[in-house]
Nucleic acid binder design. Structure first.
Length: 924
DNA sequence: CGCTCCCGCCACGGA
DNA sequence: TCCGTGGCGGGAGCG
């Protein structure tokens, strides 16, 4: 399939841009929107191959849209003409609702639709042609693409997870509905659930206020308390026990066990006085809000954190005093699915399956925070509360919100905490956080925070543990740097554990900002959720909104602007060039991880792209690696190199990459990307080095520089707060005393992309003697984004992570020793790039000169930088920086794997399906 | 065939 | 009565 690229603009505001290509799975968001909008244009006949001119949809601006949803007939008229069948439906509806209903009952539509599907209307064919039909079909949103979960993600993408207290975001239901291309009814479903968690609150008719996740912990704590009070756990146990005995749920048998509803009815009031309280048996009593809260409570009080929908439904039915019948049960389950979709989007739960005597049962597992009681300053305790979020295996996202922690504790030494946690975890064989290879468990380590845990239950993704464990080997043919997790093993200092589920976002880390740093706890990173249901592999549009607020005047303000020319790939499958076959067998995998990966990889090779894709989606681990010690960083690098089995210079790697089969697939994308006016600057590498050197040699002023990476709303991306320079960070403080730079980051994979493991080695002070001025805590942020077997690496932060052993990167190399500024030292492949052999390093092309010293220079003086994340299945990241008012911002967006072959100035090239584009513009 | 869950009918209830 | 809300369940999509 062809890889198409979407511009960020398109992703952000599809209505104002044109999408000339079929948007596939991952981009369903737009697709769906397009579909809806387009249909609303009411073309009598589907126009295939016609570029979707969203400009036409401007008529649907909120202003023009009726506040009130279009009535039935109108809607049908406007939305149905998607197919001849739809037209027929419309006509029937228009003719008479009665007729419509009658026909409906006769099952008239179904046959027609089926027929239509099987045999496209001849007239239509005549007009559009076969290819057009295909296109048409492709553009037709699938059921999954219209899922509430995905819609919710799109919704969430519109708002920052952690909005600044100063910013008051108002949500206009109409506007949102129009924007997302759905009926308002759907929005209600979302906001109702969000409201139950106090992420939003109704402020007026048709208006909701967005609060973000700030109070989520508090809300959850309250719900947990309520759940405990209501003895939900006992209830569940009782139910489960009963089930075992009866084998069949017989509604009506159960009697109320004394769990007064009165309590429940006030749920919404527990923390929000202004919430409407529901009255017994009132309509609201059954509201999605109440149900949602109860559902969440079940998780919070559950020891296993796993709830099957039937159990939840039964409990809810009992409480509601409804006449227990199958119909009620069914309805309850439907609602629970709705709620679950939203919660999944929030990365609070994930779908799993529990195996019972009667077979597998769908269930959901709580993956959100579980410990809300930490109140002391104990690092471990603090970490513990953070870990849950870090541990999120999700199709959703991993979100780390240390904001509260920071606010509460002032500072938080991630490294220490993580080390302690790691130690503790590892010392407990039975620890659920301890990963067991092949168990399908996942773990992730952020910074030094290491969380390894094993899933106790078999969930859908785990069921595919085999597949999971197989990924990672880069396509042999592909020159993509395989090196998925080079040198990383469970036992290694850098623990890399495959996640059972993809993690789309990663959030913050750090913490150790000096109290006076005035980050205002804004370090928290929110991540939107990402994906979706593990099983369905729904793409996730992540929402990630930035949220880092760095008031420091000394901060470098960068604002990211997306390159319009950037063309993200469209379909997931399409984006993944059939390069799987190119797994280099000669690349020795890392002891544990790689081995596993290698095993997994091969099977995939034989699989059809779609299949692989799915699996990858589910299995792609997200690994965050953060050296615990400065020296470790080096080790890591070494490991990578060694594991890679290749000592070739980065250039070689790149060259190989170019030669890789991926080229073809990526060719187009590359072209597009390159077409971008600001694309890669030939002098990139040089520039970077130069800047780095400069930085090193010239002690940067003690400016506190941060690169704020924010993903544009509605776009898949990740937000990252990157230290502009260590020196600056220190602000003159003794380097040794400086805490690690907090780098909240959210990685949001494109919906079309599978899970992307990310290695994040934020504060890895490199034990470099020459690295004077390098703060111990401020290391490069290393993102590893393994796609299908391939690993993408993104180093952000002072590039201290260098493999001293690397032939290409002699430790003596000054560059290696100097701190990289902005940290966006993506494992730049290049002569001197710190890149893993075998892995496509990220190459930052010199982009427009970013004024602020190092950052800009390091990133891309001269233009947008392109960073190839490597793996064929790795999402691209586009980073744009634009001067902003007071907030340094850099937008880093994940683009659908965009096969791009880019040859760097140095001869090295960044190729691979995905790239990281850093477009920095100078900012005074 | 069963699980999901989209779609939209239509009732509730406040203005 | 209007219309914002949102409960509800038919039935389609999908594995």
């Amino acid at each position: 399939m062809e890889v198409n690229c979407l511009t960020l603009k398109d992703l952000i505001n599809p209505r104002q841009s044109r999408l000339d290509f079929a948007i596939e799975d991952g981009d369903n968001a737009q697709k769906e929107n397009i579909f809806v909008d387009r249909s609303r244009m009411a073309p009598k006949t589907p126009i295939k191959n016609e570029p979707i001119d969203l400009s036409k949809q401007k008529i649907f601006t909120p202003e023009r849209n009726p506040i009130t949803p279009v009535k039935l007939v109108d809607q049908r008229q406007q939305t149905e003409p998607w197919t001849p069948t739809a037209n027929l439906k419309m006509l029937i509806s228009a003719a008479s609702p009665d007729i419509r209903d009658r026909e409906k009952k006769k099952g008239l539509f179904r046959p027609i639709e089926n027929k239509d599907d099987a045999f496209p209307d001849s007239l239509q064919l005549d007009v559009v042609g076969d290819s057009a039909v295909d296109e048409f079909e492709k553009q037709r949103p699938s059921r999954k693409q219209k899922s509430l979960g995905l819609l919710c993600q799109k919704f969430l993408a519109r708002y920052p997870s952690y909005p600044l207290s100063s910013e008051k975001t108002t949500i206009s239901l109409d506007e949102v509905a129009v924007s997302l291309g759905v009926e308002r009814r759907r929005i209600y479903d979302i906001v109702n659930v969000l409201e139950s968690l106090h992420l939003v609150s109704r402020v007026a008719k048709n208006q909701y206020g967005w609060h973000g996740r700030h109070s989520l912990p508090k809300t959850l704590r309250s719900l947990q308390r309520l759940g405990e009070e209501q003895k939900y756990e006992e209830q569940m146990a009782h139910l489960q026990q009963k089930e075992l005995e009866l084998m069949d749920y017989k509604l009506g048998e159960r009697k109320k066990d004394g769990y007064p509803d009165s309590q429940d009815q006030q749920l919404l009031d527990f923390s929000e006085p202004d919430y409407p309280s529901s009255s017994a048996n009132s309509r609201k009593d059954k509201s999605l809000r109440i149900m949602s809260q109860k559902f969440v409570m079940l998780f919070l009080v559950s020891k296993t954190k796993i709830i099957t929908l039937d159990v939840a439904a039964k409990i809810l039915i009992e409480e509601s005093q409804d006449t227990p019948d199958h119909s009620k049960f069914k309805t309850k389950v439907r609602r629970l699915y709705d709620i679950a979709n939203v919660l999944t989007s929030l990365a609070l739960i994930k779908k799993v399956h529990v195996t019972e005597e009667r077979g597998r049962k769908p269930a959901f597992k709580w993956i959100g925070p579980v410990d809300f009681s930490s109140s002391d300053e104990e690092l471990v305790d603090v970490s513990a509360s953070v870990l849950p979020e870090l541990k999120r295996e999700t199709y959703g996202q991993i979100q780390v919100c240390a904001k509260q922690r920071l606010a509460r504790h002032g500072s938080f030494n991630t490294v220490q905490a993580s080390e302690r946690i790691q130690r503790k975890v590892n010392s407990e064989p039975s620890s659920p956080y301890r990963e067991e290879q092949g168990s399908g468990g996942y773990s992730l380590e952020i910074g030094s925070l290491a969380a390894v845990y094993q899933q106790k239950i078999e969930d859908s993704s785990q069921g595919k543990a085999v597949a999971t464990s197989k990924r990672a080997m880069p396509p042999s043919g592909s020159l993509d740097p395989p090196a998925p997790l080079p040198g990383l093993s469970v036992d290694s200092e850098y623990c890399v554990h495959p996640l059972a589920h993809q993690v789309f976002s990663v959030a913050q880390l750090d913490l150790a900002f000096p109290s006076q740093n005035s980050l205002h706890g804004q370090v928290g990173v929110s991540a939107a959720s990402a994906a979706s249901d593990v099983e369905s592999l729904k793409p996730a549009l992540l929402a990630s909104q930035p949220l880092v607020y760095v008031p420091s005047p000394s901060l470098l303000m960068l604002y990211g602007r997306l390159q319009e020319g950037l063309a993200p790939a469209s379909g997931l499958g399409a984006q993944r060039p059939s390069r799987s076959s190119g797994v280099p067998a000669d690349r020795p995998p890392t002891p544990s991880v790689q081995k596993r990966l290698g095993e997994e990889r091969k099977p995939q090779e034989e699989e059809p792209a779609p299949k692989r894709q799915s699996r990858d989606y589910e299995d792609s681990p997200l690994a965050l690696v953060m050296p615990k010690k400065p020296s470790e960083a080096t080790d890591l690098a070494s490991a990578k190199t060694l594991s890679n089995g290749r000592s070739g210079a980065p250039e070689d790697i790149h060259m190989e990459a170019q030669a890789s089969a991926a080229e073809e697939a990526s060719g187009k994308a590359t072209a597009n990307c390159l077409a971008s006016s600001e694309w890669g600057n030939p002098s990139r590498d040089t520039e970077m080095e130069k800047s780095s050197k400069e930085n090193e040699s010239t002690k940067e002023p003690s400016l506190l520089q941060y690169l704020y990476v924010q993903s544009p709303a509605g776009l898949n991306g990740f937000n990252v707060l990157l230290p502009g320079s260590r020196n600056s960070q220190a602000g003159g403080a003794p380097s040794g005393q400086l805490p690690p730079l907090g780098i909240p980051c959210m990685v949001l994979p494109s919906p079309t992309l599978g899970p992307f493991p990310v290695l994040y080695s934020p504060t890895v002070p490199r034990p470099v003697s020459s690295a004077a001025g390098v703060l111990p805590g401020a290391g490069p942020v290393h993102f590893r984004v393994p796609g299908l077997g391939s690993t993408a690496h993104l180093l952000i932060g002072p590039a201290n992570v260098v493999n001293p052993k690397s032939s290409t990167l002699p430790s003596a190399d000054p560059q290696l020793q100097r701190p990289r500024l902005l940290g966006l030292s993506l494992e730049a492949p290049g002569p001197h790039g710190i890149i893993q052999p075998g892995s496509p390093g990220c190459v930052a092309h010199p982009g427009s000169a970013v004024k602020p010293q190092q950052v800009s220079r390091a990133l891309s003086p001269g233009g947008p930088s392109f960073c190839d994340l490597g793996g064929p299945h790795v999402p691209s990241v586009a980073v744009n920086t634009v001067a902003a008012e007071q907030t340094p911002e850099v937008t880093v967006a994940w683009f659908p794997a965009c096969p791009v072959k880019h040859r760097g100035p140095s001869g090295g090239c960044c190729t691979l399906e995905t790239k990281l584009l850093f477009s920095c513009q100078s900012v005074p």
